[in-house]
Amino acid sequence: MIERTATIASTVGLHARPASIFAEAAGDLGFEVTISRAGEAAEDAVDADSMLALMSLGVEHGEVVVLRTENDSAGDSLETLVRILETNHDA
């Protein structure tokens, strides 16, 4: 399993447009990626490709999240997702 952390850059947090952009990118990967707030148990992580699940997390601007996948060769893909989270999509 590999992990990456990211700080939410969008001013509205991970809702609305930023959430749909991220969920779509995660869905395009073809393998499971989960997301949770930093410091929360991995069991509480939700599917990264579900916009509804992302909205239910309610992560705000400036919060840190953890991305995880069982696919050990997916480091680059996770980096791509990190860049999406660290871009302000409302700017």
Binding site: S20, A23, E24, D47, D49, S50, M51, L52, A53
Partner: peptide, 18 residues
């Protein structure tokens, strides 16, 4: 457009479908 885009995504959302 933004609302329709987001709503479209919900139709295949894993949380809902799963």
């Amino acid at each position: 457009k933004a609302v329709l885009d987001a709503t479209a995504l919900m139709a295949t959302d894993p949380m809902l479908i799963k």
